[in-house]
Amino acid sequence: MATHTVASGEIAAHAITLVANTVETIAFEGGLGTVTVLSHDGTSAVYFTTDGTTPTVAGAHCWCVPAAVGACTVPVSTYGPNSIKAISAGTPTISVQRGT
């Protein structure tokens, strides 16, 4: 499991290539109201959580970016962790960026 940190005042962590079936954590310093997960290449679906729980591939408790070039923006609880955890069955490249 790898961890990336987005410092306070920075917007995003870009060009993260996921390792198949391995959780990747992206931590945000400072406030986090929403988060956007962007799939650069759409090679495989990306599943992610914003509440500190561990995501699983096709997990019912996960948000999903489908296997297509695209993005998913979701709210983050102000009481939860300032991080997201992502997983995929493949090796897509993603960016994760801070919203308002």
Rank of each mutant, 00 (worst) to 15 (best):
M1D: 07
A2S: 14
A2H: 07
A2T: 13
T5H: 11
V6K: 00
S8E: 14
S8D: 14
G9H: 06
G9R: 02
E10L: 00
E10Y: 08
I11N: 02
I11T: 02
I11R: 09
A12C: 05
A12Y: 01
A12I: 00
A13W: 10
A13E: 11
A13G: 11
A15C: 13
I16T: 01
I16V: 10
T17G: 03
T17E: 13
L18F: 12
V19Q: 10
V19P: 02
V19E: 07
A20H: 15
N21Q: 14
N21H: 12
E24A: 03
E24K: 02
E24W: 05
T25M: 14
T25N: 12
I26F: 07
A27G: 00
G30Y: 10
G30I: 13
G30Q: 05
G33C: 08
G33M: 14
V35N: 00
T36S: 10
T36L: 05
V37A: 02
V37T: 06
L38G: 06
S39K: 00
S39H: 10
D41I: 07
T43L: 11
T43S: 15
A45Q: 04
A45E: 09
Y47G: 04
Y47V: 01
Y47P: 03
F48Y: 10
F48P: 05
T49N: 11
T50M: 02
D51R: 01
G52F: 06
G52I: 12
T53Q: 04
T53M: 03
T54L: 07
T54A: 02
T54N: 02
P55Y: 11
T56K: 00
V57S: 10
V57C: 11
V57A: 14
A58E: 12
A58N: 14
A60F: 13
A60Q: 15
A60L: 13
H61L: 15
C62N: 04
C62I: 01
C62W: 05
W63D: 13
W63A: 12
C64V: 15
V65S: 04
V65K: 00
P66L: 09
P66T: 14
V69T: 03
A71I: 06
A71Y: 06
A71T: 02
C72T: 12
C72G: 10
C72P: 01
C72D: 13
P75E: 02
V76Y: 04
V76N: 04
V76M: 09
S77D: 04
S77E: 00
T78W: 01
T78P: 01
Y79A: 08
Y79K: 03
G80E: 01
P81S: 05
S83I: 03
S83C: 01
I84T: 12
I84H: 07
K85D: 01
K85T: 02
I87T: 06
S88F: 12
A89P: 14
A89V: 10
A89I: 15
G90M: 15
T91D: 13
P92E: 12
P92L: 08
I94S: 05
S95I: 07
S95K: 03
S95A: 14
R98M: 09
R98K: 01
R98T: 00
G99Y: 08
T100P: 15
T100L: 14
